[in-house]
Amino acid sequence: MSQLHVSAAPHIHSGNTTSKVMRDVIIALLPAAIASVVLFGMKSLILIAACMISCVACEWIFNKAAGKKCTCGDLSAAVTGLLLALNLSTNVPVWQCVVGSAFAIIIVKCMFGGIGRNIVNPAIAARVFMLVAFSEVAGGAACVLTDATTSATPLETLAPGAEGLPTLMEMFLGMHGGTIGETCAAALLIGFVYLLVRKVIRCHVPVVFVGTVFVCALVYSGFDVVYAVQQVLAGGLLLGAIFMATDYVTAPVNLRGRIVFAVGCGLITFVIREFCAYPEGVSFSILFMNLLTPLIEEWTDKEPLGGI
């Protein structure tokens, strides 16, 4: 008989792998990616391709240079690229995409130790970096489907009872200005359902995050439901809540911690949107809560069954 294998228990495995998880995230983002091409034209496709290719390339180059095993196959760099692209507007030139991707992968992810070790979400950090470094990211671009000339996101004019906003249906379908992936709520929700069905994420973080913003808006506006719904649909809230606040690496690992994290994200988002100079606060809120993650985990630690 040939040599028998010996290994520690268990001897069977669920068959789930990191690349399968990441592949599911990419699939979940496809509706939003397709919607971005429909809503903002072929320029979206160029952005997506530029970001995804440069993210994967950067990871490959870094791994080679650092003499590490290539981790491109786990698809996490591709996810980062796709998320980053969906967070940009069509005004952004390709070279900026490359710079942003390099920042996301090399500075934010690989320098901290690669997959699983980064402190903040690479796509969000890169978006904020680009927001500060290049003026083209902010404000968004005009949707090609409507004849509106304004390229501004509805958030800039959004206030209780404000006029000149797209209708709720237009907002739900994404026919308004903004970054290419954030506007189409319908597509994002399809992706959300897919992630839930595939058990990639649980519903708590997105629901609590969006719910917190909704309740804050409701209370702030004196129970103006339309305004609260507009707060949810305008800007990057759904994209951030479904795809970026649920990032495993940079959010608390326990459920209680994740809920605290989501409440924090919601509160900060609303405060920035309403009271600060920036019209959008989703990226900043997630970035900030990413930094608090180790503390939140400590606060929300609970005893196992049977005590300690």
Binding site: H5, T18, I115, G116, Y248, V249, L255
Partner: peptide, 15 residues
Amino acid sequence: DSVELEPTACIRCGR
């Protein structure tokens, strides 16, 4: 079914 799986980095998924 006997080959030991190759571990990769923990992604903190919490599963």
